[in-house]
Amino acid sequence: MPNIYLASSSPRRRELLNQIRLPHTVLAMEVDESLPPGLSPAEQVMALSRRKATAAAEQLANGVVIAADTVVALGDTVLGKPENRAEALDMLERLQGATHEVYTGLTVLKLPGGRMLTDYERTGVEMRPVGRAELERYVRTGEPMDKAGAYGIQGLASVFISGIRGCYFNVVGLPVFKLVQMLKELGIDVTEYWG
């Protein structure tokens, strides 16, 4: 069974791989995240996940690289990670009382040979109307600061989410079902790692 490398420093992605008992090594790569204008959210996350996987693969002779990138989209506006508390509060105020979409681009690259699969998952998320005071208290916790769209569905912000349509794990940052299917397409059965 090949060694698995996660090209991400996200603790949530590591937790999800641990949850399905997929042993892995973190090989987080800093990549240029600038993109040409006019790309859809799906195109953006797929391009960035490919870029991360390719950068990680350059450090390896063999194994399987998993890379992902997640954004939140409200209509045509893509919301990444907030740069400060004011931006986090602004994002949350825009999301509350509305349905938005979470996109995660996923790339799996197998070495040697460099066979690469890239796809994306989209999940609709409904955030109930939230008062400004609640949002300010949430921002003060610091939780929104390293998350696309300034919230974590698996954390304190769960009290704001009234419903989802699609894969919950995608909103956390790694669409587990899609990942398992992509690995299977490359000849890797996750259950074989379970001992």
Rank of each mutant, 00 (worst) to 15 (best):
M1V: 10
M1N: 00
N3R: 14
A7L: 05
S8I: 06
S9C: 04
S10P: 05
S10H: 11
S10R: 12
P11M: 04
R13N: 03
R13I: 10
R14I: 02
E15A: 15
L17E: 05
H24V: 09
H24T: 04
T25E: 14
M29V: 15
E33L: 04
S34M: 08
S34C: 02
L35G: 13
L35S: 11
L35H: 11
L35N: 11
G38V: 11
P41L: 10
Q44C: 13
Q44N: 01
Q44V: 15
V45P: 02
V45T: 09
V45R: 02
M46P: 02
R50I: 09
R51M: 04
K52A: 07
K52W: 02
Q59C: 12
N62H: 14
G63N: 04
I66K: 01
A67I: 04
D69I: 10
T70M: 05
A73G: 11
V78R: 01
G80W: 07
G80C: 04
P82W: 03
P82T: 06
P82C: 09
N84K: 12
R85L: 03
A86R: 14
A86Y: 00
E87N: 01
E87C: 00
L89D: 05
D90P: 00
L95I: 15
L95D: 09
Q96H: 06
G97K: 12
A98W: 02
T104L: 08
G105Q: 09
L111T: 07
P112F: 08
L117I: 15
L117M: 13
Y120H: 15
Y120S: 11
T123G: 07
V125Q: 11
V125S: 11
E126I: 00
P129T: 10
V130K: 00
V139N: 03
R140N: 13
T141R: 06
M145N: 09
M145I: 12
G149R: 10
A150L: 04
Q154F: 10
S158K: 13
S158I: 03
S158C: 12
I164N: 03
I164Y: 07
I164S: 06
R165N: 12
G166C: 06
G166D: 08
V172P: 05
V172E: 10
V172I: 15
G173I: 03
P175M: 01
P175Q: 07
V176G: 08
K178Y: 00
K178S: 10
L186I: 13
G187D: 04
I188P: 08
V190D: 08
T191L: 15
E192D: 13
E192G: 01
Y193N: 01
W194N: 00
G195F: 09
G195T: 12
